[in-house]
Write a protein that binds this DNA or RNA. Structure first.
Lengths: 143, 143
DNA sequence: TCTCATTTGCAAATCGTTCGCATTTGCGTT
DNA sequence: AACGCAAATGCGAACGATTTGCAAATGAGA
């Protein structure tokens, strides 16, 4: 992502229009510390005095996801999708069952395992998804 | 699970009524090779000439899940929940992006990693979810 | 400035799932 | 076997997250 947060170039490079809603949504995701729901993004846009319809947020996120600028994820037990900026890093999340905080980590225990799968199951791995649940240091004493 | 597929004892042991719908759903999940959606379960019940409402299937699955007889899961990119009989085994799924076949495996590369998380992040792990995507041996040549 | 394909406003529709209430059923008790 | 009653199901509506349709607005190339 460009240092000066200029998404115009990024959007143009992907062959799509650089609209104010798209840039605003990308900025909101960049500022967010954790993946956001559509409603959270929508409300943040409203706070910034932007006029936008919820269906537009959905459409915009769908376009940005299809261009790999944004990552869409759902998490076990959560029926709402969440979105985050795609930093092109390989990372996963630890999720606290108590406070629902999500902490990302980049060490991946699955990489070596994928080679074993190719050998044992004749399976060509292209991606994986890992989520780890438990209690963070703040919540482990209140469970 | 009982060898003679008699779920009456299982349901009674959990303190809930042993109804024909519940036994039928447990049997369908036992016969299934992969986790099933609510609609698939509903249609299979219909094929067996059972009269049932979709809302009853949802309620029954919710009760069976709460008693740990059934496992509910969602998978990346799939907006429908899926259900499978709980064999009390620790396993994960490899999912073929081509034919959507799901193959389970029991080796788990995450177990050792959980200890590292406790040490490094002061995080008490209680569960994890792992899905691996790619192409099975039948689809790798058509991608 | 003009043009036009793309995007958004606006609102309804869809889908997966849950809820409310009347009726039926499973099962413990007699 | 009959009875009673709490739980389960029939029936259909409701809910929330998401998608769709169409007219109007906008971004960007010429």
């Amino acid at each position: 992502m460009p240092d000066n947060n200029d998404y115009k170039e990024v959007l143009t490079r992907e062959g799509i229009k650089s609209t104010k809603h798209r840039k605003a949504i990308l900025e909101i995701l960049e500022m967010a510390e954790t993946p956001l729901t559509v409603e959270e993004i929508f409300l943040t846009l409203k706070e910034k005095h932007a006029s936008i319809w919820l269906s537009t947020v959905y459409r915009t996120l769908e376009i940005l996801t299809s261009k790999d600028l944004v990552i869409k994820s759902t998490i076990m037990g959560d029926d709402k999708a969440r979105y985050e900026l795609n930093h092109n890093e390989h990372k996963h999340h630890v999720v606290c069952v108590g406070c629902h905080k999500r902490i990302s980590f980049e060490d991946c225990p699955v990489n070596e395992f994928e080679k074993a799968l190719k050998e044992r199951m004749d399976f060509d791995v292209t991606a994986h998804k890992l989520e780890i649940y438990g209690y963070c240091k703040d919540c482990k004493f209140t469970k």
